[in-house]
C-alpha cells in the first residue's frame, strides 16, 4: 500500500507518521509538499499533526488553502482513504471534509498525556482491527481539541455511526472527568458519512511501538493496511 504524508509549513508529526508507516508497518511512504498540485498513485493520505502555518488565525484555517488541499479533497470525494491526526483533523474540518470544529480546550491550556478512548464504531476502514467497545490507551497533545458541532450535526453523527472514538475511563465509561478538552459528547474522532475520511485528536502514530507509548494505536494502521488487501 502506498501512503502519502502531507507536509505543510509547520507540520511536525510528519516525520513520526513517516517513521511508523514506513519502518513499523513496512509500507511504501512518501512526503507530499503542500505546493503539489497532483496526487498520483496513493492509497492513503495522512494529514499529520503540528502547527500548519503556525496555526495563525485558527488551526487549519490557512492550511485548507494550500494548493495540495484541492487534490486531497478530490481524492477524498473519489473515495480515497484520508487520515487526519490532530492538526490534520483540524484541517479536515476547516476544508469541509468533516463536520464541526475544534475549539480551544476548556482549560485554555495545551494538554499532553495519555488518555483512554473507547472504540465506538469498529466497522470502519480505520478501526476494524479493534473489538467493538474496546478501550485503548493513546496519547493526545493539543491546545485546540475541543470538538464542537450543533445538536443536529451531532445527532447525525450518532445516527450514522460516524463517531469513532470517545474519551472514556479505563473501563469504558463516558464521563466528564475522562474528557480532557471539553469535547461535546467526549468525541475524540469522527469519520465522514462515507467512511473514508477519519479525523482523530489522539495520535495513533505515537502508540505503535511497545518501547514508546504502547501498541494501542497499531489497530488504526492495521485496519487501513489490512483493508486495502481485501478486494
Amino acid at each position: 500500500m502506498k501512503f502519502g504524508i502531507i507536509v505543510f509549513p509547520g507540520s511536525n508529526c510528519d516525520h513520526d507518521c513517516y517513521h511508523v508507516v514506513k519502518h513499523v508497518f513496512g509500507q511504501e511512504t512518501e512526503y507530499i509538499w503542500h505546493k503539489e498540485t497532483e496526487l498520483k498513485g496513493f492509497d492513503c493520505i495522512i494529514l499529520p499533526g503540528g502547527f500548519s502555518y503556525g496555526d495563525y488565525l485558527r488551526p487549519g484555517a490557512i492550511a485548507r488553502f494550500s494548493p495540495v488541499m484541492r487534490e486531497v479533497v478530490a481524492f477524498a470525494k473519489k473515495g480515497g482513504t484520508v487520515l487526519g491526526i490532530c492538526n490534520g483533523f483540524q484541517v479536515l474540518t476547516e476544508v469541509g471534509l468533516l463536520p464541526g470544529i475544534l475549539m480551544r480546550n476548556k482549560t485554555l491550556k495545551f494538554v499532553c498525556g495519555f488518555v483512554y478512548v473507547k472504540v465506538e464504531n469498529n466497522q470502519t476502514v480505520f478501526t476494524k482491527a479493534y473489538r467493538a467497545g474496546q478501550v485503548i490507551k493513546i496519547p493526545i497533545a493539543h491546545a485546540d481539541g475541543n470538538y464542537f458541532a450543533d445538536e443536529q450535526t451531532v445527532k447525525r453523527l450518532e445516527d450514522n455511526n460516524q463517531i469513532v472514538f470517545s474519551y472514556s475511563t479505563a473501563d469504558g465509561r463516558i464521563t466528564d472527568d475522562a474528557n480532557p478538552n471539553g469535547a461535546v459528547k467526549n468525541i475524540a474522532a469522527i469519520m465522514s458519512k462515507e467512511g473514508n475520511v477519519l479525523g482523530t485528536m489522539p495520535h495513533p502514530e505515537r502508540a505503535c511501538e511497545s518501547l514508546i507509548g504502547g501498541e494501542d494505536g497499531i489497530g488504526v494502521f492495521d485496519s487501513i493496511i489490512g483493508g486495502a488487501e481485501i478486494p
Binding site: 513520526d16 517513521h19 502514530e205 514508546i212
Partner: peptide, 27 residues
C-alpha cells in the same frame, strides 16, 4: 507544568517527565 508541554512528539521519548532523567531513543 509538563502536561502543557508536548513531551512525546518525534516519538523518541522512552521515559517521560517526572523521572530521574528523560530517556530518548536514537532512531
Amino acid at each position: 507544568v509538563y502536561r502543557q508541554y508536548d513531551h512525546m512528539v518525534r516519538t523518541d521519548t522512552l521515559v517521560l517527565p517526572g523521572s530521574d532523567a528523560a530517556v530518548l531513543r536514537i532512531k
